[in-house]
Design a protein around this nucleic acid. Structure first.
Lengths: 112, 112
DNA sequence: TGATTACTTAAGGGAATGATTAACAATACC
DNA sequence: GGTATTGTTAATCATTCCCTTAAGTAATCA
């Protein structure tokens, strides 16, 4: 695809990695420094930095540096956008299935 | 990463492509054959097949073949799982931010 | 000032992704 | 039967992804 970097592409791509979801999980409980974030992950610090930049690029995480320490925090809005996209489609499917069930139930009554 | 194919990996990876989201969008309105699905997409049929197999592998889409025509339909459950993962984290962040705001408001009162 | 800490940048490599074309079923139609 | 339709498989290719090590920068500490 040409230029496949819409905001939703970046968002879901960011969520499609276990290490990044692990980072999100830990940040959901509160802000952390890069080192603290990296500590239990079993990968190198540069790898964590790369994941972090992916998470920041799509707005899931914001960070600021004070002295030599960078603190990272999860953003609610970006998560909400991804959730909203999925939710809208899920509700469409469910509504359609519900209508189908109702139709089948009515059909059964008529047939019986 | 070693073996990075958890169900959530596959799910979000599937959602991280504009063509696949386009397919999901159209299937949300109702089932479609492979050809109908491919028609407005501007990519080759084999490419559509590959996207379809990604969507089926993570449970987002189910399909069945009758004669020479394969019909594809969106699944509500898989979407719900992805939504639930995001939702839980979003609510954690929002709850924490709300507590923080309340604390700051209380602090302001005490200080004033 | 020199060492340590905390992060950052650069370079590179192996695997996965998303696309293509060509060829191959299998079914439906005349 | 012969042919068009619908889907599938195979092979290939360029790009992207995720990781690593090595080296560099900036802030804090003794």
């Amino acid at each position: 695809m040409i230029n496949n970097t819409s905001p939703l592409d970046r968002m879901f791509q960011a969520l499609a990695d276990g290490h990044r979801r692990q980072m999100i999980d830990r940040l959901a409980a509160g802000p952390l420094t890069v080192s603290d974030l990296a500590l239990p992950m079993g990968i190198s610090l540069p790898a964590v930095m790369q994941h972090l930049s992916v998470l920041e690029a799509c707005g899931l995480v914001q960070s600021h540096k004070q002295g030599r320490v960078r603190t990272c925090a999860l953003t609610a809005d970006a998560l909400a956008q991804a959730e909203a996209w999925i939710s809208a489609r899920r509700m469409m499917v469910e509504a359609r299935l519900t209508r189908l069930e109702q139709f089948l139930a009515t059909d059964k009554e008529d047939g019986a």
